[in-house]
Amino acid sequence: MSGNGNAAATAEENSPKMRVIRVGTRKSQLARIQTDSVVATLKASYPGLQFEIIAMSTTGDKILDTALSKIGEKSLFTKELEHALEKNEVDLVVHSLKDLPTVLPPGFTIGAICKRENPHDAVVFHPKFVGKTLETLPEKSVVGTSSLRRAAQLQRKFPHLEFRSIRGNLNTRLRKLDEQQEFSAIILATAGLQRMGWHNRVGQILHPEECMYAVGQGALGVEVRAKDQDILDLVGVLHDPETLLRCIAERAFLRHLEGGCSVPVAVHTAMKDGQLYLTGGVWSLDGSDSIQETMQATIHVPAQHEDGPEDDPQLVGITARNIPRGPQLAAQNLGISLANLLLSKGAKNILDVARQLNDAH
């Protein structure tokens, strides 16, 4: 009898209710805020589980004197976190989706994509230029951005401005803007500013005609071990179906173009009346040469937790077992079709030249 009692006690200790789920994140304040929001949602869904947040620095956090596009290494903000995932030191990792490459290392998958916040870019102005827009900034004003995508589009749109690289986390960039006289304004992701509670610093939100956004911008991705079915089931509740389908289309477009950090590629997606609209573009580094096109596809946005595919093969690095396969494939095909259209119009040449120029500098 006593033996059975011990077995029952052991089973209770090993039951999922007692389990601590370890969540990996970057150390920056924004990353911690984003991770806290994901953990809060998981806690609400699984009140019996405990969650421990483990923060670590990544290569991208450490190399702050070089433009991201020049470092010449993929997975700048993800490699150390993936290493911890691989060694079973954490069970899942919360990322900004735009930091996750469209091809993940073997053994990993994006197990959830959370509801997207505003994906557009924002302009934050130096205190002396508050009330201005990019259009009304004085001639030769210097605007800071760490992104080739932003610089290429904005140089084309605002030729009277000069664009220079600015690195560091959000706090560091804002301090550089406010305390030094080098920059009249800087460009940042609206979602990051909003998550930090800095709505009052948003001086201008850039519309798609001015600057399309990065693939996955404004959404959070939760990376897990691809074979860890328990954790895949656990994080599945975080999937937002519309965000998922938009981001599958965007990531398929980028992957098929073979774009990345070192080339200016941008997108804009919208879901309306059962249609998914995808606009994508590529630019030369100075913005003088560009190709942009829009395509659409009829896609039914499923309700969360309709029964999805059981075999769960990944699409552009994403596993969404609780979302039907048909809409996911339709979104992926839309991204591939748009990429093929741009490639047929000469996108590869623009991107190759951009890559060579970026590598040469």
Score class of each variant (00 low, 15 high):
Thr102Gln: 07
Gly221Ser: 07
Arg167Ser: 08
Cys211Arg: 00
Val143Arg: 03
Leu278Pro: 06
Ala84Gln: 06
Arg173Trp: 01
Leu245Gln: 09
Thr102Ser: 13
Gln29Leu: 11
Gln153Met: 07
Leu206Met: 14
Asp359Phe: 08
Glu210Gln: 06
Asn322Ile: 08
Gln153Tyr: 12
Asn322Tyr: 08
Val353Pro: 08
Leu244Asp: 00
Thr109Glu: 04
Thr59Pro: 12
Asn171Arg: 10
Ala44Trp: 10
Glu209Gln: 15
Leu334Asn: 15
Asn349Trp: 15
Asn118Ala: 14
Val316Asn: 02
Leu276Gln: 04
Ile187Cys: 06
Ile248Tyr: 01
Val282Leu: 07
Leu343Ser: 06
Glu223Ile: 04
Asp289Cys: 04
Lys43Tyr: 08
Ala354Ile: 00
Ser75Tyr: 00
Ile53Glu: 07
Ser96Ala: 12
Asn169Trp: 05
Glu209Phe: 15
Ala360Thr: 14
Ile323Tyr: 10
Ala55Gln: 10
Ser57His: 04
Gln332Ser: 15
Leu232Trp: 08
Met196Cys: 14
Asp61Gln: 02
Thr136Asn: 12
Thr298His: 08
Ala214Gln: 01
Tyr277Ser: 10
Leu177Ser: 03
Phe108Gly: 07
Ile291Asn: 09
Asn169Gln: 05
Gly48Arg: 10
Lys62Asn: 15
Val265Thr: 05
Ser337Met: 05
Ser344Asn: 14
Gly280Thr: 01
Lys27Gln: 08
Gly203Met: 03
Arg32Ala: 08
Glu223Cys: 14
Arg116Thr: 04
Gln180Thr: 10
Pro159Cys: 13
Glu52Thr: 11
Arg201Asp: 12
Glu52Trp: 04
Met271Trp: 06
Ala44Val: 13
Ser337Thr: 14
Leu238Ala: 01
Leu64Asp: 07
Asn340Thr: 10
Lys345Ala: 13
Ala67Ile: 15
Ile53Pro: 15
Leu188Tyr: 01
Pro119Arg: 04
Pro327Leu: 05
Ala55Asp: 11
Pro309Leu: 13
Gln50Val: 02
Leu315Met: 09
Ala354Asn: 02
Thr136Val: 10
Gly107Glu: 10
Phe129Ile: 05
Val301Asn: 01
Trp283Pro: 09
Val103Gly: 11
Asp121Gln: 01
Ala270Pro: 03
Ala339Cys: 02
Thr279Ala: 12
Val94Trp: 00
Asp233Pro: 06
Arg164His: 13
Arg156Ser: 13
Ser165Met: 06
Glu73Leu: 07
Thr25Ser: 11
Ile323Gly: 04
Gln292Ser: 14
Lys70Cys: 08
Phe51Pro: 12
Asp91Thr: 03
Ala55Lys: 07
Ala44Tyr: 13
Glu210Ser: 05
Ser146Cys: 04
Arg32Ser: 08
Cys261Ala: 01
Arg150Leu: 00
Gly259Ser: 11
Lys98His: 02
Pro208Val: 06
Gly281Trp: 11
Ala270Gln: 14
Leu342Glu: 03
Lys348Glu: 10
Pro241His: 08
Met271Val: 13
Asn171Thr: 12
Gly335Glu: 03
Ser75Pro: 12
Ile291Glu: 13
Glu52Ala: 14
Pro313Thr: 07
Ser337Glu: 05
Asp228Ser: 08
Leu285Pro: 14
Leu232Asp: 05
Ala249Tyr: 01
Val202Arg: 09
Val222Cys: 10
Leu238Gln: 06
Leu234Asp: 04
Ala320Phe: 03
Leu177Phe: 05
Gln296Trp: 07
Gly168Thr: 02
Gln275Asn: 03
Asn358Arg: 15
Ser147Asp: 06
Leu64Ile: 11
Asp311Cys: 01
His95Gln: 11
